[in-house]
Amino acid sequence: MNRRKYAFLIMTLPAVLLFFTFHTYPALQGIFYSFTDWHGYGPWTFVGLKNYINVFQDDRALHAYLFTFKFAITTTIIVNVFSLLIALGLNSKIKGRNFFRGVYFLPNILSVLIVGFIFNYIFAHILPQMGNSLHLKFLAKNILGDPNLAWIGIVIVAAWQSIAFNTILYLAGLQTISSDIYEASSIDGAGKWREFWSITFPLIAPFFTINMVLALKNFLMVFDQIMAMTGGGPGESTESISYLIYNGGFSGGEFAYQSANAVIYFIVIVLVSIIQLRILQRREVEM
C-alpha cells in the first residue's frame, strides 16, 4: 500500500512543482514588483504602496476597468441570449440540422486575432460602403472610429465568435431533456413561452451557470480583439485592462506600476467570480 502512496505522490509532485514554478511563482513575483519602482530593467527600490495609490488616481486605469466591464457584461448577456435562441432553433424540427450545427460552431475554431483583422476590414470598408449606398447614416462611418460606438464593434466580433461554443453547450443541455416531458406539457396545453420558462430553462440552468461564469471570465481578459482592431482607440475608449497592462508595462516602462494594476485586477476578478457563483447557484437551487 505504501508503494501505491508513493506512486500517487510521484504522479502529482512534478506537475505541481512545475505549476508552482511557472504560474504561482511569477504571480508572486508580480505582487513583489508591485511594491517597487522597477522599469523591467535596471536598478529598483521599494516604494511601498505608491503604485497602488497611483493606480487609484489614474483615470486611464479607471477607464480601462469601466470599458472592460461594460464590454464583458454586455457581451456575456448577448452571447448567452443568442446562443440559447440558436440552440433552441437547432434543437427544433428543421432540415439540415447537422449542417447548421456545423456552421454555427465554425467560428469557435478560428483564431481570434485573424477574425479581428477580418472584421476590422468589414467595419472600415464593407459597412460604410453599404451604409452609403443604402443612405443609412449610422453605417456610413467606421464605427471603430467613433469613441461611443467602437466598443460595440468589439462586442460584435467577440459575440460572433463566442456564440459558437455556448450554442453547442446549450444544445447539449437541450438534448438531455427527454421529449416525454414536453409531450406531457403539451397535453396540459402549456404555451411555448411558458413551456420554455417552466420546463426547458430550469433543466438547462446548470449550463446557464457554467456559460455565464466562463463567458464573463473570458471577456474580462479581452486582448486579441483590441490588438487587431483598435489598439485601444479612439482616444482611450477601448483600452481593456489586459491591453493596458501589456502596453504600459512594456512600452511605457511601467513594469512595477502595471504590476500593481494587475494585482488589483486579480482581486477584482476573484470578487466578481465569487459573487457571480453565489448568485447563480442560489438561483439554480431556487428553481
Partner: peptide, 16 residues
C-alpha cells in the same frame, strides 16, 4: 516622458 500616452489623448481631443 515615456509612458505619457499623448497620441491617444490628442486623438480623444479630435473627437470631443
Amino acid at each position: 516622458p515615456a509612458g505619457f500616452n499623448a497620441a491617444n489623448i490628442v486623438q480623444g481631443f479630435f473627437i470631443k
